[in-house]
Structure formats: C-alpha cells, structure tokens
Simulated scan of single mutants.
Amino acid sequence: MRRWFPSLILSAALWVMWLVLNGSASPGHLILGGVIGLAVPVLVAPLKPAAGRLRKPLVLARLILVVGHDVVQSALDVGHGILRSRRQPPRGSFVDIPLELRDPFGLAALAMITTVVPGTVWSELAPDSSTLRLHVFDLAGEAEFIEHYKRRYERPLKEIFG
C-alpha cells in the first residue's frame, strides 16, 4: 500500500492545490488533479532521503543556543565592520577547513548554520567531504577561526549525527 501511495496527505494537498490554482471543480480538473496528486508522490519517492538518526538531543539544544548567539554577535560584528570600513577595510579571505564530519545530514546542518551566521559564506565542499572552503568577511587569524568553527559547529554536529 505504501509503495503505491507514499504520502496520502501530500496527494490530497496536491489535488486541492490543483483545483484552487485552476479555479475550477469541473470533472476534468477533479480527475486530472487526482492523477497528479497520486502520481507525483510516487515519482518523487526515490528522491526522498532516508531518515537520519538524531543522537544527543541536549547537544542539539545547546548547538541551537550557540548558533543563535553567534548570529546576533556576528551581525553586530559585520555591522561594526561595515561602519569602520573607510578607516579600516575588512580583511575578507577564503579559509579551507579540514572536516571530520562526513554524515550527509550533519553536513547539511553545517551548511545551514554557515549560511545563517552573517559574515561567512559556504563556498565549496571537496568531493570527498574532507575540506570546506568558506569566505569570511573579516578574518583576524586563520588558525583561530578554524578552531572556533570546528569547536562551535562541527564537533557538536559530529556528536549529534555520529
């Protein structure tokens, strides 16, 4: 049953969305919307990743607080850097960070964290996931930044996702 109808809620939502977007509940639209609603979840089911295992929820809670703090602090730092940029231009630079984290869910979380924190941009991930290249808005010291990044983000994610 699950093979032919992987997500009845998604099927129903697609069917309703089809009817609303077309503004018609004619028999043709009812049938076509139903076919689309049933076919799309079956066709995209192989693309759905397997569920990841979440270990150590307390580490996750602490990581969320750390990221929240870092977002605020980094936003203030970037704002301050922009305001003083005429006197002292920011030292933007690319940094290569060696990674120990290999779990795809952990890497996805790391990418989201990097995207959310102002002043850092995820630029490239090595094909074997061994090295991450970031662009940092104002880099004081590369070694210190790498240690900071690994300690605050990568290590907790490694604990959470194994």
Score class of each variant (00 low, 15 high):
residue 1 M to Y: 04
residue 1 M to P: 10
residue 1 M to N: 08
residue 2 R to E: 07
residue 3 R to N: 04
residue 6 P to M: 08
residue 7 S to K: 00
residue 10 L to H: 02
residue 10 L to Q: 06
residue 10 L to R: 06
residue 11 S to E: 00
residue 11 S to Q: 10
residue 12 A to G: 09
residue 18 W to I: 03
residue 19 L to P: 01
residue 20 V to D: 05
residue 23 G to S: 03
residue 25 A to W: 12
residue 26 S to M: 03
residue 26 S to N: 12
residue 27 P to L: 09
residue 31 I to M: 11
residue 31 I to D: 07
residue 32 L to S: 14
residue 32 L to I: 14
residue 35 V to N: 05
residue 36 I to E: 01
residue 41 P to W: 02
residue 42 V to C: 14
residue 42 V to F: 05
residue 44 V to Q: 04
residue 44 V to K: 13
residue 45 A to E: 11
residue 48 K to V: 09
residue 48 K to M: 03
residue 51 A to V: 11
residue 51 A to T: 11
residue 51 A to G: 13
residue 52 G to K: 00
residue 52 G to P: 00
residue 57 P to A: 12
residue 59 V to D: 09
residue 59 V to L: 08
residue 60 L to M: 10
residue 65 L to N: 13
residue 66 V to C: 03
residue 77 D to W: 13
residue 80 H to Q: 15
residue 84 R to E: 11
residue 85 S to T: 15
residue 88 Q to C: 06
residue 90 P to L: 11
residue 95 V to E: 02
residue 96 D to I: 01
residue 97 I to T: 01
residue 99 L to S: 08
residue 99 L to M: 12
residue 100 E to R: 09
residue 100 E to G: 11
residue 102 R to Q: 14
residue 105 F to S: 15
residue 106 G to V: 12
residue 110 L to H: 07
residue 110 L to R: 08
residue 112 M to E: 05
residue 114 T to Y: 02
residue 115 T to Q: 10
residue 118 P to L: 08
residue 126 A to T: 06
residue 127 P to E: 07
residue 127 P to L: 03
residue 130 S to P: 03
residue 130 S to G: 05
residue 131 T to D: 01
residue 132 L to R: 00
residue 136 V to F: 04
residue 137 F to S: 01
residue 138 D to G: 05
residue 139 L to N: 02
residue 144 E to P: 06
residue 145 F to E: 05
residue 145 F to W: 01
residue 149 Y to K: 06
residue 150 K to A: 10
residue 155 R to D: 04
residue 156 P to N: 09
residue 156 P to M: 07
residue 157 L to R: 12
residue 157 L to W: 15
residue 157 L to H: 15
residue 159 E to K: 09
residue 161 F to M: 08
residue 162 G to V: 12
